[in-house]
Simulated assay, not measured.
Amino acid sequence: MQRREPLGGAEFAPETTYLNSASSGLLPRRSAAALRAAVVESASYGTMGRDYFAAPNAARAAFARLLDVPAERVAVGSSVAVQSALIAASLPPGSEVLVPEGDFSSLVNPLGSHPHVKLRTVPLEALADAVRPGTALVAFSAVQSLDGRIADLAAVREAARAHGARTFVDATQAAGWLPLRAGDFDYLVSGAFKWLLCPRGTTFLAFGGDASEDSAWPAALHAGWVAGEDLDESTYGLIRPAATARRFDEPHAHFSYVAAEHSLALVEELGVPAVHTHNTHLAAYYREGLAARGLTPRPAPGSAIVSTPGLADAERRLTEAGVRISVRGGLLRAAFHLYNSTDDVDRLLSLLA
């Protein structure tokens, strides 16, 4: 198989063999430099910097371009769980929400713990067929965190439309390497600290559909001053919510979004299709190496995440050798991203041997 060097050039020079992007991504050098400058600035201008809104607005616009949705339909936040709770609270009492078994808790738990929601779980592969009359929402990860399985996005979307259900997609394990269109779904949320290379505390919530269909938006239940149409008039008392998805903004973590602006710019420069080709090539190369050693990973065709049973005990030895990797559900999970190379795969395979 063709050899591959890392993408991103001098933006990355990790001291480890880093194969853990499904847990958190590496911060590009440009983002780290911007973050250091913002910290220095805060000593004279406060922890909101000289311009509190410039970075999140630039990051919002970049995320919107990456997910092919108008920036006016994107809100910035801090966590998937908060955004999931917002969607849960928007549902009528008694609503059935359909989710895959074992999906990530930050998506599922806020839905399942809401007193007005009836949660129903089915295997991921049965998700599209399980949509039925009366299903109000289908919520699922585009890519499963545990083992990298990719949902049949088109099938679930069409089944939901056929039954009048809305769709809520968690793209945390997909955005940045798997080509996606947020407009294909009613709601799309993404924690940006993994494949989008941003710090923790950066999350985006995109609203699909026609940008003029404001009636499809839920109530802005956690709206604070940053969600007001006129920020100069939104500091005290009841506010007039913004006319755009900014009405769902949370007061953002300034330093996180300063770095996010630059990280997302790098992903844009490289292009998601190129990153997808690179990542899936490395994952396929790793699968071939596992097969040659008599090892069989969990089936996840076309995924950048490869999870393998029977290797969990290797994590400590790999960590001691400078390989950053994770174990989830008894599976050794390797995640291949733009800063990895075939040399990284070869090193992992040799250590496993």
Rank of each mutant, 00 (worst) to 15 (best):
R200E: 10
W195L: 04
Q173T: 11
W195N: 05
G183I: 10
F207I: 12
D186G: 11
A171V: 03
T172P: 10
A175K: 05
G176F: 00
P179Y: 15
L178K: 08
L197P: 11
P199G: 07
T172N: 09
G201A: 08
K194S: 03
F204E: 13
G209F: 15
L188M: 15
L188I: 09
S190P: 02
G183D: 15
R181P: 04
G191L: 06
A206H: 08
W177N: 06
F193K: 10
G191V: 10
A192P: 01
K194Q: 03
A174H: 00
P199D: 04
F185K: 11
L180M: 09
G191H: 06
Q173F: 08
V189G: 03
F185L: 10
G176Q: 02
R200N: 09
L180T: 04
A174K: 02
W177P: 02
A192M: 05
L197H: 12
T172D: 10
V189T: 12
C198H: 07
G208T: 13
G201I: 07
F185R: 10
L196C: 13
Y187M: 01
P179R: 12
D184I: 05
A192H: 00
G183Q: 13
T202E: 13
P199V: 05
G176I: 01
S190N: 06
D186N: 13
R200V: 10
R200F: 08
A182F: 04
Q173R: 11
L188H: 09
Q173S: 10
G208F: 15
G201H: 05
W195D: 02
F204I: 14
L178T: 08
K194V: 02
F207A: 10
L205C: 09
D186A: 11
F204T: 15
F193V: 06
A174P: 01
G183P: 10
L196F: 04
A171R: 03
Y187L: 07
G201F: 04
A182S: 09
T172K: 07
R200D: 09
K194E: 01
L180G: 08
A174N: 02
G183K: 10
R181G: 09
S190C: 09
G191Y: 04
L188N: 09
D210Y: 13
T202W: 03
W195Y: 03
D186T: 12
L196R: 05
L188T: 13
G201L: 06
G208C: 13
D210F: 14
A206R: 08
L197E: 13
R181Y: 03
D184N: 12
A171W: 02
L196W: 04
G208M: 15
A206V: 09
W195G: 00
K194A: 01
W177V: 08
A171Q: 05
T203V: 15
W177F: 03
